[in-house]
């Protein structure tokens, strides 16, 4: 994790800054009015910086260019890949008979044509679980399949 330093600027606002991977320093001033300035520290004089004023519109564009669009792109790809298929998040009730069974023994793929691509358990994610993956109560299974397949998988997970 990058260390972001926070400095209070009395009468002005707050400055946040951090070092980039190649050792340059970047920062942002948030003025009391909410106005933001981008700071690019100089190489030859690391205490001084170039300042770029950012308006609301500029901010949005910059954020999108730097990171936002990547996310948008990924989501678009996902939708493209699953055209004709459905993707869903199915939670496993504690009283479900599936709790304690392994993924292989549920024969979910054979019964419904649905694949479990990942299981979310609390804060952890188990991507591409193996057949010997054992379900626990309150797991969330990320499944991909036809809409009908997902409906029957949902019903199967609800079985007691």
């Amino acid at each position: 994790m990058t260390d972001v330093e926070e400095t209070l600027l009395p009468g002005v606002g707050v400055r946040h800054d951090f070092s980039t991977e190649d050792g340059r320093r970047l920062g942002v001033i948030v003025h009391r009015s909410g106005r933001r300035e981008l700071l690019i520290y100089k190489k030859d004089d690391p205490d001084a910086c170039r300042v770029v004023q950012l308006g609301d519109e500029d901010l949005r564009v910059l954020v999108e260019l730097l990171g936002g669009t990547q996310i948008v792109e990924r989501v678009a790809n996902l939708q493209y890949a699953v055209e004709g298929l459905a993707i869903d998040w199915l939670s496993l009730p504690a009283r479900s008979s599936t709790v304690g069974k392994t993924l292989g023994s549920t024969e979910l793929r054979t019964r419904t044509g649905v694949s479990v691509v990942a299981v979310l358990r609390g804060e952890t994610t188990y991507p591409s679980p193996e057949p010997d993956f054992e379900f626990a109560a309150d797991d969330v299974a990320v499944v991909v399949g036809t809409p009908e397949g997902i409906r029957s998988a949902t019903a199967y997970f609800q079985e007691e």
Binding site: T7, L8, L9, V12, R15, G27, I29, E37, L39, Y41, P46, D47, A48, C49, R50, V51
Partner: peptide
Amino acid sequence: QRLGNRETP
């Protein structure tokens, strides 16, 4: 444009 400078605080 020195508000961001490190000596300014």
